[in-house]
Write a protein that binds this DNA or RNA. Structure first.
Lengths: 172, 172
DNA sequence: CGCATTGCTGCGAAATCCGCAGGTCTCAGT
DNA sequence: ACTGAGACCTGCGGATTTCGCAGCAATGCG
């Protein structure tokens, strides 16, 4: 408290634990910066990241490992569905009678369903479907989803053109 | 060992141009397998991938570089929005009069908008919004989206619970 | 005050990445 | 058929990166 000589490190340290965002797990500014680096290039070397955020290579490595272990982030390859052979996609709004959660669970188990979210509004659930062609899409929606007990109705929005798809959460 | 490798290579090579999916850029089974490896772990060493798909380290490296250059895939960190401080998300359906594309363009330019897709159905556009809190969300929807000239109406679906979020395109 | 915990640094050793020089195969074009 | 261009793979050093570990400062707690 009276020692100002060694203040530089301790100051940075205090900064790191305050963390301007009040999110659930404490996620300080340095970790945020590391995530940003890895959002630009998931394979960027730890040393390069360290240089960018002001940390040693080993420290970056430990932080990244921890973020992965905690499930805060994952480093993965993401592909453009079209180039990988999935030519039909759709968002499906679902209305449910009874237990919404169990229907959501059932949707989650379908491999063609990439995205499931429970919502407030005129749909109980939104689900994104990724299929190879029209037949496949039709099959999933009509045969598999509408036939689930508890599904009252569905409405489909077939994708015409994907305009934006980013993974830049945590930035800004 | 040598002869076996050569034989399998030529066989795979013929496979590669048939490739059960008729997607735009020719994407053979080996590249598919490489992508699957990187979907499990975006930082997996090239040598390990090579062992898994039956290629040398250098060959895997060249293929990955090409896939990245072509934009077929990208290797990035993806985060859970909630843990990074974004507590409100919503899907917004938009109806447009006039040029749909230009409205989609305008949405694309907003940093809070993570996802924009033009659709067939009762909405012209679906956009996913990621915000810090309710005020922020309200601001984006009411002040910025509804005020765009050409936007006839919007309908919002606030996220209550995210059930599934995968990046496993190209597998299955 | 002593002690456990957390998080960072620094440093070798091991593993990985990278560029480059061949080699094989395919496919035009003369 | 021959040849040259192009695509793709392998193998091999050397540079770089990753990894594990020991040491150390700061924090929290009984």
């Amino acid at each position: 408290m009276h020692s100002e000589v060694v203040a530089s490190r301790s100051a940075e340290h205090r900064d790191s634990r305050e963390s301007r965002n009040g999110s659930s797990p404490h996620l300080d500014a340095v970790s945020l910066a590391i995530i940003e680096q890895l959002q630009e290039d998931g394979r960027r070397p730890y040393a390069a990241i360290g240089k960018a955020v002001g940390l040693s290579e080993a420290a970056v490595r430990q932080r990244v490992q921890k973020l992965l272990d905690q499930g805060v982030m994952q480093i993965v390859a993401v592909t453009d569905p079209l180039t990988v052979g999935f030519r039909r996609q759709a968002m499906v709004g679902v209305n449910v009678e009874g237990d919404v959660e169990s229907i959501a669970e059932a949707l989650t188990d379908m491999p063609e369903v990439e995205y499931v979210v429970m919502t407030a509004g005129s749909f109980d659930i939104l689900a994104e479907i990724v299929c190879e062609d029209d037949d496949h899409l039709l099959d999933v929606i009509n045969k598999r989803i509408r036939s689930l007990p508890g599904v009252r109705s569905t409405e489909s929005f077939v994708y015409l053109k994907l305009k934006k798809q980013t993974y830049m959460w945590g930035t800004r």
